[in-house]
Amino acid sequence: MLLEIKDLSVYYGVIEAIKNVSFSVEEGEIIALIGANGAGKTTILHTISGLVSAKSGSIKLSGKEITKTPAHKIVEMGIAQVPEGRRIFSQLSVFENLKLGAYTRNSQAEINESLETVFSRFPRLKERKNQVAGTLSGGEQQMLAMGRALMSKPKIMLLDEPSMGLSPLLVSEIFDIIKSINKSGTTVLLVEQNAKKALSIANHAYVLETGKIVLGGKSEDLINNDSVKKAYLGE
């Protein structure tokens, strides 16, 4: 088990945002968390990354407890996040953003190697290497955010709403890229409102409603589940 979340509860003040959530991610998988706005998907990713602290429960990475590990150490342990809204450093260049992605790594040779991999995956980032990131288009910013996360050479990549604000054509392109990143060995935990797209690439998925997991299973089973169809697939 690469990532194991058990009985996780998270509070914002007195409000319980996540209630006893448990799920796990096997190495090499794509796991999707789907659910409406405000269901707690982002909170779960922020808790895994250490930006928000858990009230109770545990998060384990390869069997190692990381629930109380500070955010900056979690990256080093192999969890990278592509946050909601991309949150690239808009005043820095594309190249500087990518270098920040490799902040926790020390070997310049290995960093250069990752840089080449990222550039070959996202040729457009190479063309715009010296451009200020804030001037990129939405799709390019999403690619930069993903490239930046890959620069830490993560074991698992957490993706928060990668389709947000993108045209359907670009959404398909981004999902193809996610699939290919997964194929080359990175485990993916994907949070999406676009349930149809998410279920189309995930092995397993969980449905989150007001902080609780109400349903989970293989993606193909969920696609055919009546309540999922009605609530999330618009059928």
């Binding site: 990354s49 930006l51 955010a71 900056h72 080093e76 949150r87 920040l100 902040y103 926790t104």
Partner: peptide, 24 residues
């Protein structure tokens, strides 16, 4: 320098900087 870049990152977005592994 690396520390300088970390400062720029923190200056723009503390949370995103943490996600890069920067100790804010």
């Amino acid at each position: 320098t690396k520390t300088g870049r970390a400062m720029l990152a923190v200056s723009e977005d503390k949370g995103a900087a943490q996600l890069m592994g920067v100790n804010v």
